[in-house]
Design a protein around this nucleic acid. Structure first.
Lengths: 346, 346
DNA sequence: GTGAAAGCGCTAACAC
DNA sequence: GTGTTAGCGCTTTCAC
């Protein structure tokens, strides 16, 4: 049995194909009784509209493209980050009759822009979601914009009002975390910065400074060490900080992987966490819960952010090039207090 | 400027659209000089064939569907598993002009079969890759088979010769790991089993038994405890084993998450790893390297397996229903020795 | 080797 | 409210 087409359904329901199309696409202007007849025919023939035909005729697909930094390009731990976003987009897709096309890409390659344009030309997605840190790279964003495809950035930090984006309050929540550490009696709170390409990570540093100020502590760049977002760099930075004559009593790392590195190095140096040292991270990766002691961290609402982004796209809210209408939705991050932080020693 | 169509290219190259089609699809029977002219025109217009039109006309898409167990359905740590497979499929897609459509699905839902059929009817993928454990579930595999779509199972363990599949040697490598532990002098080697729905995990248990036998140790079901693949169950099983009067000196868990649970519980009980207890896992997740002590485990060649599967599909090797031609490719797993295993105490 | 014509299954624009 | 008619941009015959 060949698969049913819109003609088969129309015939069985005794209507024209246009009416079937209306019903399938949930358009208005169909009498309830007609709608029912059509729906019955659809069910009976287990009719599914062919997406290719649909896309071809309508000049758009029902595909959402999700573009993110290729995790294979360096380390694996961003797996959770990617999966969360995929989940978010997928749940929006399920209620929006769409499918998800994933496209990890390596921004270090010269021709990323061209690659993205090819992808778009071939698949004509209904919209593209670009995740951080790519969402902050002009060459990526511009390449997509040039195709005229609606784009939503999952960004972080800065509200650049030029495009639609979904962001979280990295800065504020980092200030909050810093205040929390200060409230535990810590006076020397160190910060490990991350990959400078990652704008969000820079925002976290600013938030740390805000938090110090709000807590009446004064900022010292001696307490700031530069990591690169990796576990290994967390170990290195942690070691440097902890081997000083007057080491910090709390270390706040710009992501969980680096925080995990600090915990590991503390263990090796015989420094007890949290009795002698408090450690906080950012991201709330699976690692954070499984570490011993489990990590106090900040949960980014990635899944929700991705879902919002996909919904914006599917509702067609991002079609117009009208800059005024564009805006940033903020989905707040939340602090997760676990075992790695406690009262300052002494 | 509207995007170029096959007509524009044909006109610029001074040939018919059919010839352009031949060049683009790498078909034979085109004179080299003609091919060149067409390629030049393609480049000049940056022509990209519209996939929708292509699919519509050819009754097939260039999409590969990847179906796997929805990680949101329970815990997050399978993120690495999913990402690895996606990477593998993507690298095959890049050289095969295809795109990847991901479809996590929850096998606990009654209508998974119908959902899969809808997906297939709508997107008409060139083929479907089903990952373990779904690849061992008849209702899933059958639903896909009924649509006539080529399918490759990423399986594990059993070579069920009925379908094309890519598998790894779970059983053999677990025997090897067990022998390795025995060679370190361990006599009481415990095993933590996993989710019974996961056939591969059952194979691991069989491999453990093989390994004991090969090492001249006798199997005792007192040394076998049932986990459910989660970190928490690893903690629980580890605690049960370690609180005995005559505890095992080595624990081999059917996956890394459970092994991590054992390490954590050992730490809490003041048992040193690996001095007093050796712990081994399976999967080589990111966690394995980041744990302290880092985990001796088994690396599954997931990415390679997924790439093989996608390549099989893209080469059209899975079209015929001829059962004889079908077979299982084996990609071997390898032992990764790290810090969590060492000589037996005493 | 190359080309002409006929669709693929749908949506869009308009008529009724 | 509903139907008619043209395509969308390709691949597929099959003819040359």
């Amino acid at each position: 049995m060949a698969r049913a087409t819109i003609f088969d359904v129309a015939e069985l329901a005794g209507v024209s194909i246009k009416t079937v199309s209306r019903v399938v696409n949930r358009e208005p202007n169909v009498r309830a009784s007609t709608r029912e007849r059509v729906e019955k025919a659809v069910a009976e023939l287990s009719y599914r509209p062919d997406q290719s035909a649909r896309n071809l005729a309508s000049h758009r697909s029902h595909l959402i493209g999700l573009v993110y930094d290729d995790p294979a390009a360096y380390e694996l731990p961003s797996a959770g980050y990617v999966i969360s976003m995929q989940q978010g987009v997928l749940s929006a897709c399920r209620s929006g009759l769409a499918e998800l096309l994933i496209h990890p890409c390596n921004y270090r390659q010269k021709d990323v822009g061209a690659q993205l344009k090819s992808l778009i030309a071939e698949t004509r997605p209904a919209g593209i979601i670009v995740a951080a840190p790519l969402s902050n790279m002009p060459k990526i964003v511009r390449a997509i914009e040039e195709t005229g495809t609606p784009i939503v950035r999952i960004s972080t930090g800065s509200k650049s009002g030029k495009q639609y984006s979904v962001a979280t309050n990295d800065r504020d929540v980092c200030a909050e975390m810093t205040c929390y550490l200060a409230s535990l009696g810590h006076k020397r709170i160190a910060f490990i910065t991350g990959d400078p390409n990652h704008k969000a990570v820079a925002q976290r540093f600013t938030g740390y400074q805000d938090g110090l100020e709000q807590s009446g502590l004064k900022f010292s760049d001696r307490l700031v060490v530069a990591g690169d977002n990796s576990f290994g760099s967390g170990e290195a930075c942690g070691e440097e900080l902890l081997k000083r004559k007057n080491p910090p009593t709390a270390i706040f790392a710009a992501n969980d992987d680096m925080a995990a590195g600090v915990v590991r190095v503390a263990d090796r140096l015989g420094i007890e966490v949290p009795a002698q040292l408090s450690v906080a991270g950012f991201d709330d990766t699976a690692l954070a819960r499984q570490l011993y002691p489990s990590l106090t961290t900040i949960r980014q609402p990635l899944e929700e952010m991705a879902e919002r982004a996909a919904t914006m796209l599917l509702q067609g809210k991002c079609e117009d090039a009208d800059a005024d209408a564009k805006g940033t939705e903020i989905v707040p991050a939340t602090i997760q207090i676990r075992e790695s932080t406690g009262p300052a020693p002494g």
